[in-house]
Design a protein around this nucleic acid. Sequence first.
DNA 1: GCCGTTTTCGGCCCGACTGTTTTCAGTCG
Length: 576
Amino acid sequence: MPGAVRANESVAALLTEYAELLALTGGDPFRARVYEKAARSVAGHATDVTRLSSAELRKIPGVGASIAEKIEEFVHTGAIRAVDELRAKVPAGVLAMTAIPGLGPKTAMLLYEKLGIDSVDALESALDAGALAGMKGIGPKTAANLRHGIALSRAQTGRFTVDVATRTALDIVEALRALPECERCTYAGSLRRKRDSIGDIDILAAAQDPRPLMRRLVELPIVTEVIVAGDKKTSVRTVSGLQVDLRVVPLASWGAALIYFTGSKEHNVRLREMAVRRGLKLSEYGLFTVDTDELIVSETEEAVYERLGLAWIPPTLREDRGEIEAAAQGTLPILLTEQDIQGDLHTHTNLTDGVSTLDEMVAAARARGLAYLAITDHAKNLPMQRMTDAKMLRQREQIRSMDAGDMVLLHGTELNIDPEGDVDWDAEFLAGFDVCVASVHSHFTQSSDDMTRRFIRACENPYVHIIGHPTTRQIGRRPAVEADWDAVFEAAGRTGTAMEINAYPDRLDLPDELILRAKRHGVKFALDTDSHSTVHFGHLPFGVGQAQRAWLTADDVITAWPLPRLREFLQAKANR
DNA sequence: GCCGTTTTCGGCCCGACTGTTTTCAGTCG
């Protein structure tokens, strides 16, 4: 059955590829869109498509008779003939060319058909040889842009972590707000939706005369390149390679514009479809009647949602993952907030690889108003940390004798899950800790089956309360390990083991999609900062963002519980 | 190819910017 990659994701990838191939080969553009929509909906579908009947498949939004048939074909044969046939018509390199900024399906296909250009490398050679001169629709400017686009796509190091993006966005917002012409300014886009990584920054501002704001943006010292410059929209690139889009609208359009620029694209498409069904038209300038073009609402997000029959939807939910239906029915969840967080169960001191002392960490946690704090330095099997039994016991005594005021101090450790799923100490020693986090710190490349068994064995250990940063991914540097996550989460739910939501911006682990899947298995979550310094407690909002994106409430998160309830949860595990 | 609180057929989200096409196509978000 489903391994690391669910059949749903394989099907979604094939449907997406089919949509891209359809766009390349021309024909009905609406067909391509239907396949894209079906791909998203299959990827987000809770039930494995291999277990669904034809009738059940057709109940997935966007899946009709034809796509259901293709999914069934995939389930039975592992492939879809229609996809294979289109693949045979268009070299993979032509599809890859559309990843170059500014080069879409039409141009890619034109270059392939007229000049036989079938890869990014071939395009570069053709540009060098001047072979594009005289091509219809491609002048000297376009050729130069393509050359630039190739360089950009090669230099692309991926997406940016949320801490870097947040800092950049706040600096720009502050600079624009300082202008007297600026009536309002904020960031929107994926940063407002609190995605786990950020591709570019969207800034929205309101002003009667946008020109001073546009000028200010392009003149900022961090700006190295102006990509587009208009009266309503300006795009620039910063020294770090981050693209920043600034849109300026009249203040009266603020609400509609903020919805539009917050996205996601899929969420906005759904809203516009709802508007159309009501004889209305939604754009960034407001909600209008179609026939008379009369403005109905635009000033606030709430007013626009309300006129569409919806409750206001928190930005972290705007991914077309069921939030629109919930808003229509009044069943949106009361999301976890930063204020709900009572404690932190994963922190380090300079006894291992932290940089702050125990005293400093305790003082910082108290200053943040935490009700409880667990110190969880690394266990002995991570040799570079030089941990010993004696050091650990000495730290425990130190913690037991400390006065932390109203805050309760817990003594814990971050255990290492070895390749077989065992941890650093025996039951007797483990029993002395108040709380144990257990994490994978080595052997990241085990097979999915081995890794799955490893995690399940760790969950079945009565002294392991929390699985730390489960996928071990490091955003932009190291991929997630492979495992059958549904099997792991089933074990976590069954044994009362919490899964961590690690708030460290390079990790954000579990990621939101996996949190959603884990919740279906009845799993509870430990939202921790994994602080290695007093300043890292400030990473909490990034973790809260992931929890919100996964629809979590305070009841789902054990670090949002008061200490007595948390202690019951920890105790229940040992008593199983 | 999908879909229906107008519809089982005729629609399908909307607008900005660029470059080159003298009126708009392509790309992007």
